[in-house]
Simulated scan of single mutants.
Amino acid sequence: MRRALAVVVAAAVLLAASVTARAEGLEHERAEALAELAVVAARSQDAAQRTDHLSGAIAQAEQDTADRAAVLAVRPAFLNELSTLAAALRNADGKVDTAVQLASARSAQETVRAERTDPDTVVAATATLRALTQKVGTEVAGWQAAQTAGPGGPPWSSSGPDGYARVRAALDRVGGGGVGLYESSSCAGGTAPACANSNGYIKYRADIAGWSEGRLNWAMAHELAHIYQFRVWRTLTSSNAYAAMFGGDPEFLANCMAVVRGFPGSVGCSGEQQTWASGIWVGVVG
């Protein structure tokens, strides 16, 4: 009986040890499974993040490509307008001052050259060029109309086209773009090198085409001043200030007006006289 009981107890101990070992083995397997699951989950999360990143990068690249294509699609219209404006500027050479329009065109060109994603920027620059072309065309048309508004016949004779172009450039330089210009020996019977007509144009004697640039600029600024005087002539000649400050002398006033424009002659003007004379350029008689 005791022997049998001992056998039973030993068997129970062995069974308990076996169960404990099995439980420990299962726990170890469970821990390994959980660790492997964590690794798999981490790899899955990393793969998902990589997928999201790649998807975003692809979407951005596709958007960039679409934007670039949209910009390229509107560039030909800009280039066409640029070509049209260049032709207008060439036609305006020697007729009107186009420095402002040229600077604006260059700015628009740099803007388009740098633009990569926004087609509206290119469209706006194209509209700017179109407006500049129209403005140049209008100013040239005004200049051409002014050329036929004075006496009949060609605008030059003995000074020739080169001499005329030089005097024309001086008149444009001092702000007389669009004012008619003609060679004539009729100014004060030929004794005056140039004169202004109340109808709005200027005549010059052929020899002044050979004057120095500074002297020629002054002469054209002086005659252009007379054109502006004619525009307010009645008010000007009735002004007490004009009589007191300039002795009612339009030549003296024209000299001071030329000084205001930055083209002084041989006659000096006080600061007060210059200030008063500047008003005539904008149609104001003090």
Score class of each variant (00 low, 15 high):
V259I: 05
G176V: 01
T148Q: 15
V285F: 03
Q273D: 00
E272K: 13
L129P: 01
S239L: 07
Y228M: 11
A192F: 04
G262N: 10
G265R: 02
L34T: 10
A77K: 09
A16T: 07
A149K: 07
G160K: 05
A277C: 06
A103P: 02
A57Y: 00
G214V: 11
T117H: 11
R261N: 00
T51W: 01
E183K: 09
V112N: 06
L34M: 11
A41H: 03
L15G: 13
M257G: 15
Q45T: 14
A169Q: 10
V260H: 06
T126I: 05
W218Y: 15
R75N: 07
V40Y: 07
L253R: 04
S278V: 09
R173E: 10
P161Y: 02
A170L: 01
Q144P: 09
F78I: 10
R113C: 01
T84Q: 15
E36L: 15
V136W: 03
G137I: 05
A23D: 07
Q134R: 14
T117N: 12
Y228I: 09
A169C: 05
V174I: 07
A277Y: 01
V9N: 10
F78V: 11
A225Y: 00
F78K: 14
L102W: 00
M257D: 07
H226Q: 03
V19F: 02
T20P: 08
P155S: 12
V71T: 09
A146Q: 04
G153K: 00
A165P: 02
P151Q: 06
A258Q: 01
G152W: 01
N199V: 11
G279L: 05
Q229I: 03
Y242I: 11
G283F: 01
V7T: 13
L34Y: 06
L129V: 03
V284I: 14
V7F: 07
A277K: 07
E62W: 05
D162T: 14
N199L: 12
S266K: 11
A33I: 04
Y228R: 15
A105N: 04
L129S: 08
S238D: 08
W143P: 10
G177N: 07
F252D: 14
S185W: 02
V71P: 08
R22C: 02
Y201Q: 08
W211T: 12
L236F: 05
F263A: 13
R234P: 05
R30F: 05
T128Q: 15
V267D: 12
R234S: 15
L14T: 14
T84E: 12
W143R: 13
A145E: 10
M245G: 10
V112I: 03
A125T: 02
A35P: 07
L216D: 01
G189C: 04
